[in-house]
Amino acid sequence: MKKIMTTLFLLFFAIILVGCSNKSVVGTYVATDGQTLSLTSDGKVEYSDPQHDDTSTGTWTIKDNKVYIDRTNPDGVKRRQIYAEIPKGKIDSLFFKVTKESDGRGTFTEQIFTKKNN
């Protein structure tokens, strides 16, 4: 019985840690050129680039301490996957890059996105 309780406690603790790390990236991020990324707590993302009249929606996931974003534009065209390493502590900004092996279309300027105060 003691082993079962210990296992359940560790499982609960692991779930709490994963949940907290996901919530730390939730928010709206803005680049200096006006691009915007909004990451919601349910794993959805909205992207906007007003300079190029580009919008897309999709999902985000965390794997190996990186947040990965997959998007599709309104015409159903898959965009290139982007990712950012998650820094330790409070997240004030994320440096997004294109995943090299991404098979999506379009261009993306790799840059820092600063988290807005929500």
Rank of each mutant, 00 (worst) to 15 (best):
M1I: 07
M1Q: 09
M1S: 12
M1C: 01
K2H: 13
T6S: 10
T6E: 15
T6I: 08
T7Y: 14
L8I: 01
L10R: 00
L11V: 03
F12R: 00
F12E: 06
F12I: 07
F13A: 09
F13D: 06
A14K: 00
A14F: 13
L17A: 07
C20Y: 07
N22T: 00
K23V: 00
S24K: 13
S24D: 02
V25K: 11
V25T: 14
V25H: 10
V26Y: 01
V26D: 04
G27S: 00
V30Q: 09
V30E: 06
D33I: 03
D33F: 01
G34P: 03
Q35E: 12
L37E: 04
S38Y: 05
L39M: 11
L39V: 00
T40M: 03
T40N: 14
K44F: 10
K44Q: 08
V45E: 08
V45P: 10
Y47V: 04
S48K: 14
S48V: 02
P50Y: 10
Q51W: 11
S56Q: 08
S56A: 15
T57R: 03
G58D: 04
T59N: 14
W60I: 01
T61N: 10
T61L: 12
T61Q: 14
T61R: 06
D64A: 12
N65F: 08
Y68N: 13
I69M: 08
I69E: 07
I69D: 11
I69Y: 06
D70R: 10
R71C: 08
T72H: 04
T72F: 08
N73S: 12
D75Q: 15
D75L: 10
G76I: 08
K78Q: 12
R79K: 13
R79Q: 13
R80Q: 12
Q81K: 14
A84C: 08
E85Q: 05
K88D: 15
K88R: 07
K90L: 03
K90N: 11
K90S: 07
D92Q: 06
L94C: 07
L94E: 05
F95P: 01
F96L: 09
F96I: 05
T99Y: 14
T99H: 14
G104A: 04
F108E: 11
F108M: 11
E110D: 10
E110M: 04
E110V: 00
Q111N: 12
I112L: 11
F113Y: 15
K115H: 07
K115T: 01
K116Y: 06
K116T: 10
K116M: 14
N117S: 08
N117L: 04
N118W: 02
N118H: 05
